[in-house]
Amino acid sequence: MSEMVHALAGHAQPGIFGNLGEAGPAVTLAEVRPAAVLQVGAWPQTRAAVESTLTSFLGLSVPQAFGMSSGDETTTVMTLGPGRYMIVSADAGLREGLKEQLDAEKAAITDLGHARTVLRISGPAATKVLRKGLTLDLDPGAFPERAVAQTAVHHIGTLVHRREAEVFDLFVFRGFALSFWEWLTDASLEYGYRVADPL
């Protein structure tokens, strides 16, 4: 639906800002607009069945370890805790498809597609910027690629997904998106940042 008005509409103006070194801005910021963000919750008795259904339906193996993800170009599945998963996808039909696969006895599916604003931060200074707000250990040994963490940045609940060494997706409550954006851009001024068009 083209009529959607996202939280940062009119606020995240494209451009280049802050201290630019010779190599230009060291940070790129862009809003990501997935077509689906779904939380899936199993119960202990149904966990194995739910994981197996997700694996076959998504064509991705659901990680066993908490705080890890697996994904392809379209879809990412994150294991947030025992029996709790988050699915992020460019496939809008995923919600209905998943509801058909998992009935109410097996799992609770909660649509959070509009409840989150997703911001991607990338570039050589991405980790340096995040250290200004994340209390997590961002060392690649402690938080490797594909890792996921639920935490907070200055009291704003944030889910952090490390896609690559210096590429992170940050999921925040839609209502805090502008406040968070203001923090993120302010923190990036020191390194120079470029605002790209929404993905």
Binding site: A48, S61, Q64
Partner: peptide, 17 residues
Amino acid sequence: EPKGNPPIDSGSDTGSA
């Protein structure tokens, strides 16, 4: 419940009963 295993590099874990 059994806890998840520590993170491993490869993404090819499959759930086993």
